[in-house]
Design a binder for these strands. Structure first.
Lengths: 114, 114
DNA sequence: ATGATACTTAGCCTTATGGCTCAGCAATCA
DNA sequence: TGATTGCTGAGCCATAAGGCTAAGTATCAT
């Protein structure tokens, strides 16, 4: 449970950056090398590498070096953790009145007063 | 598109913190005041407030002040953005060989050499 | 054997994050 | 009216994030 939470920390943090999401988008179409992945981004390679390391640390991708080329690929299993969390969250909503809070928030026309 | 990306930045960043995920878990069971929400956490109120503001900024919750009490509630719609992104990501995987990358990564027993 | 390629390491810089305290301020309660 | 409750604002602090450059190492090609 606790370790699951830390895992989610890393996963969501990894997803919170547009560069990293774009990398995942590219890897969704198949494995690629670091330099191939880096090409679309106007960023120094070491900066880009930090994103790769972050993604690998979160478990969302795996990498493997062969010769001088490091190949990256998505680890689909890790995405299941996101789905699980979302399901748990949604499970809470269901079987609940569900009219109340929309009412609570909408009646006073968005007047989020100080 | 671009603004969607920034929206996702905020949403995922908001989810990347255990306190904030716990707050969402609590709010999943229904609206609550700031001080009720803060009770379980061993944290000064202003610190806790930052999390609430972050959540509100991301759109995952909405708040409304009545008298001296501010009530918070989940905005379920925002969660759809996460599902959408996940679906898009999964759409990329599907209709693809799908054996290749697992092979690429698993053959060399995890020897992620330097 | 040289040179180019593909990372990798180290370190610097700026901004953001997540915690704190101390001091308000407005709404209720006694 | 005075005290308590429930936030709110300002500002400090330490660490992490995300960018950079410069220099290094290991392959691979010639």
């Amino acid at each position: 449970m606790a370790q699951q939470s830390e895992q989610l920390d890393g996963i969501f943090q990894a997803l919170a950056d547009p560069t990293r999401r774009a990398v995942l988008g590219r890897l969704g179409r198949g494995p690629a090398s670091i330099s191939d992945l880096a090409k679309p981004f106007d960023m120094a390679l070491p900066s880009f590498m930090k994103h790769i390391h972050f993604l690998e640390g979160s478990g969302l991708i795996q990498t493997r070096k062969e010769g001088r080329v490091r190949t990256c690929a998505i680890d689909k299993q890790r995405f299941a953790a996101i789905e699980t969390w979302l399901s748990e969250q949604r499970a809470l909503w269901e079987g609940r009145t569900d009219r109340l809070e929309q009412f609570v928030l909408k009646t006073q026309d968005k007047e989020t007063q100080k």
